[in-house]
Amino acid sequence: MSEEAGSIKKFMFVNRTAPYGTVYALESLEVVLISAAFEQDVSLVFIEDGVYQLKKGQQTKGIETKNFSPTYRALEGYDVEKLYVERESLTARGLSEDDLLVDVTVLAAEDLGKLMDEQDVVLSF
């Protein structure tokens, strides 16, 4: 464990899928929580339909599935504070920052690309 303890890598989680239609959003969130427990430098990126994961007001009772969206608000408690949303993806879906259930940094595609280049490990779900 001593090797891991001293080693902090930049982990980026790229979320590209809408919630509920597939399991990826939920299971991505589970890896995020674990990497926070390993005290890694974690950032989350939401692009394309992934931005829908952060839409305010999710009500899942009717589809008999757990609403996991409150977890995004709990991330701060795990020291996961770097949440990025691509501006083009938001705009293409008629959404703005006010529609999102958590504070994020909105970035242009180009700036997101640069941020991605700086990572050590990029996990895409």
Partner: peptide, 20 residues
């Protein structure tokens, strides 16, 4: 095993490649 094994792999390996 647990998801920690995936994160550990990301930390220890030189490259992590995702297939899906």
């Amino acid at each position: 095993s647990g998801l920690g094994q995936l994160v550990e792999s990301g930390i220890q390996a030189d490259r992590l490649v995702v297939f899906g």
